[in-house]
Design a protein around this nucleic acid. Structure first.
Length: 343
DNA sequence: TGGCATGATTATTC
DNA sequence: GAATAATCATGCCA
């Protein structure tokens, strides 16, 4: 903007602003070697925005637009250079012609050439500036796309909720579990992480609000669990090769844990940390074992999180509730807050 | 169209 | 580096 005001007056070639523009164009991969630096710049720009595989379209879109800008920039630049040269020779010819009628000093010629060059470099500067602006706009638009969100599919949220509520005492899926969930939900692992992060925080903030949802999923889990268990029992009794898969959602493995009782027990709004699971330990163990054999998630979680070391403590925190060494005692927080004065 | 739901980002903490 | 808490920005529905 300032440029157009200052315009024709002073165009110092070593202008810091020009240098800034040059640097930026180089960094953005607009100027400089066609593929080398440019590709690198594009790579960093797109890497910053990379959210998942489904973004490849946007990537190519970004690249295409950037290369379009680059192309325009280069052709314009070339055009200006050519025009500058042509104009210079034209003026030189004029001066030469004039030299027949009046004496023209070499100094005067040099001065004219300088004026012409300055004019063209100011045009060049404007080109660079507008190119920079174009890149900035493109970039900001592309970066804004990060915030563009679409709600997950109903099935996806269902799957995530089922996992969440059936692991209510420790809603921290392991890396494998996250991957599994991501695959099932057709989202990325980081989206799964985001989802659990949001869910935990929002659940904790307003347990009452989520109670209905918790009951819903607990009931759902219970029904499926019953089916699965029945099938498993029948399976072991009849020794038949029947598979317990409910067929509802393919191979989705329902994580059945004591947590589902937990979400039930919280019906009246007052949240009780993991207290029930232990009661059914002996029986539940065999059941869990049976289920674990036919279901997926439990595998990745074996030994730990089903009966989690964590509980929503008095301060409303899962994360630092208990140390792993106390896994063997899942009663924590049942009747007493026991001596653990966490925080 | 306003308000709530929800996915993503950021700052902070451990 | 993962989790939390706060916040942003968009989606969705009455």
């Amino acid at each position: 903007v300032r440029l157009s005001i200052r315009g024709s007056q002073d165009e110092d070639p070593s202008d810091p602003q020009l240098m800034r523009l040059d640097n930026m164009l180089l960094a953005e991969g607009v100027s400089g070697p066609d593929k080398g630096g440019g590709a690198a710049a594009v790579a960093t720009a797109t890497a910053a925005v990379d959210v998942g595989a489904d973004n490849s379209i946007e990537h190519s879109d970004y690249r295409a637009k950037l290369s379009q800008i680059r192309q325009i920039y280069h052709t314009e630049l070339e055009k200006y250079e050519q025009a500058c040269n042509e104009f210079t020779t034209h003026v030189m010819n004029l001066l030469r012609e004039q030299s027949r009628t009046r004496p023209i000093s070499p100094k005067e010629i040099e001065r004219m050439v300088n004026i012409i060059h300055r004019k063209f470099s100011s045009i060049q500067m404007q080109l660079k500036q507008s190119t920079c602006e174009a890149v900035m706009i493109l970039r900001s638009r592309f970066l804004d796309a990060r915030r563009k969100r679409r709600n997950f599919s109903k099935q996806a949220t269902e799957i995530l909720n089922e996992y969440f509520y059936s692991h209510l005492s420790n809603p921290y899926p392991s890396e494998e579990a996250k991957e599994e969930l991501a695959k099932k939900c057709a989202i990325t692992v980081s989206q799964v992480s985001n989802w659990f992060g949001n869910k935990r925080i929002r659940y904790k903030k307003n347990i009452g609000k989520f109670q209905e949802e918790a009951n819903l999923y607990a009931a759902k889990t219970a029904v499926t669990a019953t089916q699965v268990v029945a099938a498993a029992v029948q399976n072991s009794q009849t020794n038949s090769p029947a598979t317990p898969s409910s067929g509802s959602s393919g191979s989705y493995s329902l994580p059945v844990s004591g947590d589902m009782f937990m979400s039930m027990s919280g019906l009246n709004g007052s949240y009780q940390p993991a207290q029930v699971p232990n009661t059914g330990q002996t029986q539940g163990d065999s059941i869990r074992h049976a289920i674990g054999q036919s279901l997926g998630y439990s595998d990745g979680l074996r030994g730990n999180p089903l009966y989690s070391p964590h509980g929503l403590n008095g301060n409303g925190g899962w994360h630092d509730a208990v140390t792993p060494s106390s896994v063997t005692s899942p009663i924590e927080g049942a009747n007493s807050v026991h001596s653990d004065t966490s925080n």
